[in-house]
Computed example of a mutant assay.
Amino acid sequence: MSDVRIRPMTVDDAPRAERVTAIGFHELDTRMFRRSWPDPQLRPPERGANWINRARHLIGTDPGGSWVAERDDEVLGIVVSFVREKMWLLASYAVVPQAQGLGLGKALLAPALEHGRGCLRAMLNASSDPRALRRYHAAGFRLYPQMFLRGTPDRSQIPVVDRVREGTENDIDLMDSVDRQTRGAAHGVDHRLLIQQFRLVVSESRSAQGYAYLDDGVALLAATDRRTASRLMWEAIASSEDVLIGHITPENGWAVDVGLAARLDLHQEGYQALRHMRPPKPYLPHGALM
Rank of each mutant, 00 (worst) to 15 (best):
N125F: 02
Q146S: 11
A139H: 04
Q181T: 01
Q146D: 07
I172S: 00
R131V: 06
K106F: 04
S92L: 15
D173E: 12
Q98N: 04
S156C: 06
R165H: 11
N170V: 00
G116N: 01
R121G: 14
E166Q: 03
G105N: 08
D171V: 09
L124V: 13
R150H: 13
M147S: 13
L133N: 15
M87A: 15
V164K: 12
Y93K: 00
A126N: 06
V160I: 05
L120Q: 14
D162A: 12
G118S: 15
M87I: 11
H137C: 00
R165A: 09
R84W: 06
Y136R: 04
N170Q: 02
D154H: 12
R117H: 12
E85S: 14
R135V: 09
D154P: 09
D171K: 05
M123P: 02
L143I: 09
R150W: 15
A126H: 02
S92D: 15
S128F: 01
R135A: 10
V161P: 04
D176N: 15
N125K: 06
L124Y: 07
Y136T: 00
G151F: 06
P145M: 04
R134E: 10
R131A: 09
L90R: 03
A138P: 00
A99Q: 12
A110G: 04
A122S: 14
V161K: 08
S177T: 14
F141T: 03
L143F: 09
A110R: 14
N170H: 06
G151Y: 05
P130I: 00
L143W: 10
E114W: 01
S92M: 15
D162C: 05
M123G: 07
E114V: 01
Q100D: 08
I172N: 04
R165L: 11
D176Q: 12
R150L: 15
G167M: 07
R155I: 13
L120S: 15
Q181L: 13
Q146E: 15
T182G: 03
L149A: 11
T152C: 07
A132V: 10
R180L: 09
K106E: 13
L120V: 13
E166V: 01
L133E: 01
A110E: 11
G103D: 03
F82I: 02
L174P: 05
K86M: 09
S156T: 12
G140N: 10
L109K: 01
V83I: 15
Q181W: 07
R117I: 09
D173G: 04
V178G: 04
R165D: 06
S92Q: 14
R84N: 09
A122W: 08
L104H: 00
P159L: 07
P130Y: 03
P145F: 02
F82P: 01
A112G: 03
A138Y: 03
V178M: 02
A91C: 14
V83R: 12
A132H: 04
V83C: 10
V83Q: 08
A107I: 04
P153D: 06
R165P: 09
C119A: 11
C119I: 11
